[in-house]
Design a protein around this nucleic acid. Structure first.
Ligand code: FES
Ligand code: FES
Lengths: 161, 161
DNA sequence: GCGAAGCAAGACCAAAGCGGTCGGAGATGT
DNA sequence: ACATCTCCGACCGCTTTGGTCTTGCTTCGC
């Protein structure tokens, strides 16, 4: 259930890595972000390099990363790490799929007429979306600074159906 | 992302249907629950009968339903509709899978050592689990009687997909 | 007791999605 | 201009999913 694809997992890892490198370069050195290459990130996490490359491509196309080709090229964050949510990353990689399996690109599924649980599930969907929206890349780096607005801290989250 | 399988969708529909029939039979008639057959439920929602049958079998094996064979047999809820959560249904059908793709039966995935986002994702996982645990199938029948606790902070942000 | 209605359990199959790989195109620094 | 480095798009096999079929068993109505 609710399986988050490995690609999205890798993507989040890569984003976190880039954010770390960026803040580290901004504080210690004064140079601009050094545009980590896909291969570097892949080796840092021991994941298939070419697969990560494709993920980064997707992320770049989605506007979350900027790519720089050529020697010493690579990727760097398009926005601040504090300004990118986990939801954006996941949606960029896994597409706009949602839990109800009815919400497809073609609009309604063939059961739309007699499906009785569509609305409640949509609410659940929205809640999960909000949950993910409350998580920023910067939160992944330092778990202590999680923002208190998202009830991520282990509290029971209730939704009104 | 986070795709809820169609089987679980069907399962929830069936559970809701059974709950409706059960409460209806308890209030109007005085007879016991009439044990709806799989075919009846399938026809009510226009879903493949044999597929639903297999889903109901799984649900019965999980202890959420009780089956009664023979003529005029069928399925009925094992517990009160107020006492079955959506999480149980989903887990019974789709298995104990979880979002992080690392949490497998074999314990840790091969990236466990150098994966940095495992913990944050686990918290998200728990939050979703709590979210689903807060939904009972009685809530699906009458949306008005939902428990009125705090919705997620930070309003519903809708993104055009 | 007999047959029909219904569940139970398995094998089986096609389609889709996912994870992973390959070779080429393009930019960059020298 | 060249060598090289990196991005980029196409490709491919595997697993999962959704769905069907067959067979056997259990119970009830008659
Ligand atoms: S399955 Fe499509 S609306 Fe519920
Ligand atoms: S991918 Fe397995 S621990 Fe993160």
């Amino acid at each position: 259930m609710l399986r988050l694809t490995k690609k999205a997992d890798y993507g989040l890892m890569a984003l976190k890595y880039l954010a770390e490198q960026q803040t580290l370069a901004a504080s210690i050195r004064n140079g601009a972000n050094p545009a980590q290459s896909a291969k570097d990130i892949a080796e840092a996490y021991h994941i298939p390099p070419q697969l990560l490359a494709k993920i980064l491509q997707t992320l770049a196309k989605a506007g979350l990363l900027v790519s720089h080709a050529g020697t010493n090229g690579g990727y760097s964050l398009a926005r601040s790490a504090h300004d990118i949510t986990a939801f954006e990353v996941i949606r960029a990689i896994d597409g706009p799929l949602f839990i109800t399996s009815c919400i497809t690109i073609h609009g309604t599924c063939d059961l739309a007429g007699h499906c009785t649980i569509k609305e409640p599930l949509r609410k659940v969907n929205d809640s999960i979306k909000d949950l993910l929206n409350g998580i920023r890349i910067s939160d992944l780096i330092d778990p202590a600074e999680t923002n208190p607005s998202a009830a991520l801290a282990g509290g029971l989250v209730s939704i009104g159906l």
